[in-house]
Amino acid sequence: METYTAMRHFADSWGLLAMTLFFLGVVLFVFRPGARKIADEAAAIPLKED
């Protein structure tokens, strides 16, 4: 039972912090300058003729 309590405490504190930092990192990565051009080029790849 002690292991469950320790894991629960870790998930409630550091796990939440890690998920929040990951989310903020993804948001910053998506909205960084120049991301739109790269995303538009990647989206057009299937439409290019060989």
Rank of each mutant, 00 (worst) to 15 (best):
L17I: 07
F29Y: 15
M7L: 15
H9R: 15
F23H: 03
D50A: 13
A18V: 04
V26L: 12
I38P: 02
T20C: 08
L21N: 11
H9V: 14
L16A: 03
E2A: 11
T20V: 11
D40Q: 15
P33F: 05
A43T: 06
F10S: 02
T3H: 00
P33W: 01
W14M: 06
V30C: 15
A18P: 00
V30Y: 14
K48A: 08
L28E: 14
W14P: 00
T20D: 06
F29D: 14
E49L: 14
L47G: 04
L47K: 09
H9I: 14
E49Y: 10
M7C: 10
A18W: 02
R36E: 14
F22I: 09
M7Y: 10
L47E: 04
K48N: 03
A18T: 05
V26S: 02
A18D: 01
A44H: 04
A39G: 06
F29G: 10
L16W: 01
F23W: 03
T5Q: 13
D12E: 15
G34M: 03
F23N: 01
A44W: 01
D12A: 15
A43E: 07
A43V: 10
R32S: 11
A43H: 04
T5E: 11
T20Y: 05
K48Q: 10
L17A: 07
